[in-house]
Design a protein around this nucleic acid. Sequence first.
DNA 1: ACCTGAACACCGTTCAAGT
DNA 2: ACCTGAACACCGTTCAAGT
Lengths: 197, 197
Amino acid sequence: MNASEQRGRKPRADVQRNRAALVETAQRHFLQYGVGTSLEAVAKEAGVGPGTLYRHFPTREALLAAVLQTRSEELVARQADIEQLGDAGEALEQWLRAMEEYFSAFSGLPDPLMAAARAQEPDNPLTIPCEIFITVTDKYVAAAQLAGHVRASVRGYDLFLAACSIAWITGNGAEEESLDRLRTLIASGYRERNTQA
Amino acid sequence: MNASEQRGRKPRADVQRNRAALVETAQRHFLQYGVGTSLEAVAKEAGVGPGTLYRHFPTREALLAAVLQTRSEELVARQADIEQLGDAGEALEQWLRAMEEYFSAFSGLPDPLMAAARAQEPDNPLTIPCEIFITVTDKYVAAAQLAGHVRASVRGYDLFLAACSIAWITGNGAEEESLDRLRTLIASGYRERNTQA
DNA sequence: ACCTGAACACCGTTCAAGT
DNA sequence: ACCTGAACACCGTTCAAGT
């Protein structure tokens, strides 16, 4: 959002180009070096001065939010697939995996996400996505509880935290086997003890 | 460890003083600003040049390990208390809490710990402490399994990861209530389903 | 043997000057 | 209206010169 867009006019062509180049380059650098990567390097490789980067994205979180936005279609598609599932317990599990993968996209991403989920600062551009994640998780949890698959005491926020944790561990280079063990342990924690099968 | 100590001689008085001042100051700064705090500021407040800090502690991890060392007596005392407990399940729980608290001492501490636990670099001064943590956790897990309190599939490493995660969430400012809910969920995950009480 | 602190490199961030 | 890039501040790290 810049001045032109605020007034409903079409942004200048070079503005659009700069913004797109910044987001595209940032995504590559985030993928390769993590969310703490040098913004100076991003600006340089995108062919703009550092001032242009800061004009478009006043904070690192703003740039991060823009990059995550471009990755969210994939997640919406996953949700559509999940809705097709008959089993609410299976749906919740797949949604948790989808969140984990999304949060594991860049190393270091879980930290700003957690920070945004905690403090309700309206100026943090990651706050809204986080709230959406928590709300959607709540929905899947409620459905799975209705179907008797998940214990009544579990909240969506708890499993959001769990997904963030798994993504954090992933970003620190844990082996897939360790992650699977921890996922199983957590699933045993939230699943309803079946009073016989 | 410096040249004097390597030869078994007594280190010069100013060397001891510098080292102690660095560790003490670093602990205060880690507590207040997290493990990413400025080492330059630590050196300045400890009254030494940056070169002296780097001579004593070639990496941030080395300084961190020295600070953690001074906090480990407390943990050993906790272990002694825990040994007194009759219930192996209770002992495991208390040990997990002790680890969590230890890992939560400084914000940002779980990251270098996880990195050290993962890669077996012998030059990382946090690797040995991590291995000890995992081994001790294994011991408590084994005892709790023998007593029938913990599921056979659980490993100490899994619960070490869980403790790191809780500490990471804590460092990101989560509310105590959220932490308690997640602890309960994890405990439900590793505890044996009692075939009647 | 150890310490000092200047020096270099790198990065985040701002802002006066341009187009 | 937007961009440029110099400028400033801050920090990590090294190393030649001192004691």
